[in-house]
């Protein structure tokens, strides 16, 4: 079970790397979040902790339902072209992400040389998600991709916390969820404003603003 969920989380990373349009990206994010929800649920079931159930529920509510919905709405409202603009084409991005997967594996192996394989793999997956979120932020032009990249990184950190230390304290987790939600709303607003002002949301053109 765990392995399947892990596979799902990991799979979403290259999927996001090759996505060229905004809706596809959002869909992949939703997929990743869903698998994350499953992972948390299974962890909760395995340890029988109530707070993990609540967290899983929140995760489902926010990251699977609400945030993707908001992002969809933004893409519809700004009516800009749906392409998120690639600095690096899809094939090369795929290679990058695969390379990062391998690097994450090597790294987690080096960090915990004597741990169980499953734990090492979980750690590697978490790292990989963080790195691919970072990758999305750097190599995608649209501001929307940056929001999603940040959310992906957050997912990765969540996974990292739950795998390494069995989850963060309950209240911290709740606070982070709230944080993420608010930041998505704010960033959505900003993206909307940027679009209104410049008729595009290409972040690389923002450099023209400097004196």
């Amino acid at each position: 079970m765990q392995a399947v969920i892990l596979f799902g989380v990991l799979l979403s990373c290259p999927l996001m790397a090759i996505a060229k349009r905004a809706p596809a990206l959002v869909r992949n994010f939703r997929l990743q979040s869903f698998f994350l929800f499953l992972a948390t649920l299974s962890l909760g079931a395995g340890e029988g902790r109530v707070d993990l159930y609540i967290i899983a529920g929140l995760l489902f509510l926010l990251k699977v339902l609400l945030i993707p919905e908001i992002l969809y709405r933004i893409t519809r409202r700004i009516k800009a072209n749906e392409n998120i603009g690639l600095f690096i084409n899809a094939q090369l991005s795929l290679f990058f992400v695969l390379g990062m997967m391998y690097a994450a594996w090597v790294f987690s192996k080096a960090m915990f040389p004597f741990a169980a394989v499953l734990k090492t793999t979980l750690l590697a997956a978490a790292f990989c998600v963080v790195l691919s979120g970072m990758f999305l932020m750097i190599f995608r032009i649209s501001a929307l991709a940056q929001i999603i990249g940040m959310l992906v990184m957050e997912n990765g950190i969540f996974l990292l916390a739950s795998t390494v230390s069995g989850g963060m304290p309950f209240f911290v987790e709740i606070a982070i969820f709230f944080d993420v939600f608010v930041s998505v709303v704010i960033m959505g607003f900003f993206v909307y404003q940027i679009n209104k002002l410049f008729t595009h949301i290409n972040v690389n053109k923002l450099s023209r603003l400097k004196g």
Binding site: F107, M111, Q146, S207
Partner: peptide
């Protein structure tokens, strides 16, 4: 410091990677 957000993010990314390597 050309004003490109992507480059700044890249700096952060690179720093992170370097730190990981450093830690390793």
């Amino acid at each position: 410091q050309p004003g490109s957000i992507h480059l700044y993010l890249g700096y952060i990314f690179l720093t992170l990677l370097l730190l990981l390597v450093f830690m390793h």
